[in-house]
Design a protein around this nucleic acid. Structure first.
Length: 425
RNA sequence: GGAGAGAUGGCCGAGUUGGUCGAAGGCGCUCGACUCGAAAUCGAGUAGGCGGCUAAGCCCCGCCUCGUGAGUUCGAAUCUCACUCUCUCCGCCA
């Protein structure tokens, strides 16, 4: 949520920033309502002041044994007027809030301006895409051939966009989860969290999924509860409605969770394999930090995500998203894209964002700065550290051998009970 | 699922025959004194939000907030109702 005061103080500057995100005229109605709100507020507060002082007067008169009836009658009438104005005010405020909740974050100055992913900026590359001396297969062929991924039976159970992992496939998925968690907790200083996989609508508003992206979510029948689309939601909302001490910051947390996404509007995209699923596993990194540190923390968080790809020796590149391709809550986002032979291209495997105070404002997460006592919103960051299913797909494709077997990356072998290669059994 | 108790400031915790309570006390925090310095001690300050005033900030003024939402009343932390959550006991259960 944007700062209402900022909008009022400098609407044209905000409007200009929003235009970078292809959003126009979002503030027009808001500003009109803001004027209306203030004039209503002025009137109703005046009446309330009269009511308050008069009520005290009534108390005094009664105490002295006087007759307060005329004054009481007068205040009673004012009371009705107050109620009407309050109702009107409430309507305006609800409308204003709905507008604000649907406006995305403002991009940071360092973010390239552009309409979509074509204007993203490649920052760096790590590793070299393998040159195979045979025709490489896609993971959606490798997996079934090794009998470790089963898309057909998954469809029988749950329909399209689900995968059953079997044998070494299931074990590999679990190995990657444990490997990532170990690295982030033991080497990068994150605290491991195992959160609920279902959260309230308030949490979804807090991190920005609601109200705008309701159709992307799985909602529980008859309840105000949602399956989490990412651990960012429970991890960030851990601190919702809280006031943190300066000494508590920065907070680094990580969690493995499954993620559930309806994938409405992505029909026909990435239909094969595990790339785009209704349920997938992910290890997420979240930071709660003081505002002045957040951009430095973004670099570090992104480096933490890069590290696990490096340890797996998977070629990837780091991309700075342009204004047109960024997520709703983000001010600046780096994507990590892993090399996928089946796509003959790099494919997103991590997204690391600084949301600044956008989520903190929605979720009301504040802290008390050490020096002066005034409360401030924290900055929140999140990043995949990294997606598990896509990691497994990348391993299958990048480590495949001519005979259809797959070498297990060395660093994962301890997590695989020493297994070195996955072969058809 | 049944019965009971509770929800107050960053935290703990008083306050329920309705009026001077946004709220005692404590902790924490900030500043000051003492000290070579620290601890201890002493003194002072310390809720949040919205709006007005202002060029802006500080003051100052007003409004709102004692789980949430309605209601009674001239007036509600205090009374009524509904809801949410927490705790205790019982039942069920991995």
């Amino acid at each position: 949520m944007l700062d209402a005061k900022l909008i009022r103080a400098n609407p044209s500057a905000v409007e200009k920033e929003l235009q970078k995100r292809n959003i126009k005229g979002a503030l027009d109605k808001y500003l009109l309502l803001d004027d209306k709100r203030r004039s209503l507020l002025l009137r109703v507060e005046e009446l309330k002041n009269f009511r308050n002082t008069s009520s005290q007067e009534v108390g005094k008169i009664k105490k002295q044994g006087g007759d307060a009836t005329p004054l009481m009658e007068k205040v009673r009438q004012v009371g009705q007027e107050i109620k009407d104005l309050d109702d009107e005010l409430k309507t305006v405020e609800v409308e204003m809030e709905q507008i604000l909740l649907n406006i995305p974050n403002l991009p940071h100055q360092s973010v390239p301006v552009g309409p979509d992913e074509t204007t993203n900026q490649e920052i760096s590359r790590w590793g070299e895409p393998l040159q195979f001396d045979f025709e490489p297969q896609a993971h959606w062929d490798i997996g079934p051939n090794l009998d470790i991924l089963d898309f057909e039976r998954a469809a029988k159970l749950s329909g399209a966009r689900f995968t059953v992992y079997k044998g070494a496939g299931a074990r590999l998925e679990r190995a990657v989860i444990n490997f990532y968690l170990d690295i982030h907790t033991m080497q990068h200083g994150y605290r491991e969290i195992l959160p609920p996989f279902m959260v309230t609508g308030d949490c979804m508003i807090g991190t920005g999924q609601l109200p705008k992206f309701a159709e992307d979510m799985f909602k529980l029948e008859g309840k105000e509860m949602y399956l989490i689309p990412t651990a960012e939601v429970p991890l960030t909302n851990l601190y919702r409605e809280e006031v943190l001490e300066a000494a508590d910051l920065p907070i680094y947390v990580t969690a493995y969770t499954p993620c559930f996404r309806a994938e409405a509007g992505s029909h026909g995209r990435d239909t094969r394999g595990v790339i785009r699923q209704h349920q997938f596993n992910k290890v997420e990194l979240v930071k709660i930090v003081a505002p002045e540190d957040s951009y430095e923390e973004l670099e570090k968080l992104t480096a933490n995500a890069e590290k696990v790809l490096q340890l797996l020796k998977l070629p990837y590149r780091k991309v700075l998203l342009s204004t047109g391709d960024m997520g709703f809550s983000s001010a600046k986002t780096y994507d990590l894209e892993v090399w996928m032979p089946s796509y003959n291209d790099y494919k997103e495997i991590s997204s690391c964002s600084n949301c600044e105070d956008f989520q903190a404002r929605r979720a009301n997460i504040r802290y008390r700065p050490a020096a002066r006592g005034k409360l401030q919103y924290v900055h929140t960051l999140n990043g995949s550290g990294v997606a598990i299913g896509r990691t497994v797909a990348a391993i299958l494709e990048n480590y495949q051998q001519q005979d259809g077997s797959v070498i297990i990356p060395e660093i994962l072998r301890p997590y695989m009970g020493g297994m070195e290669v996955i072969k058809r059994v």
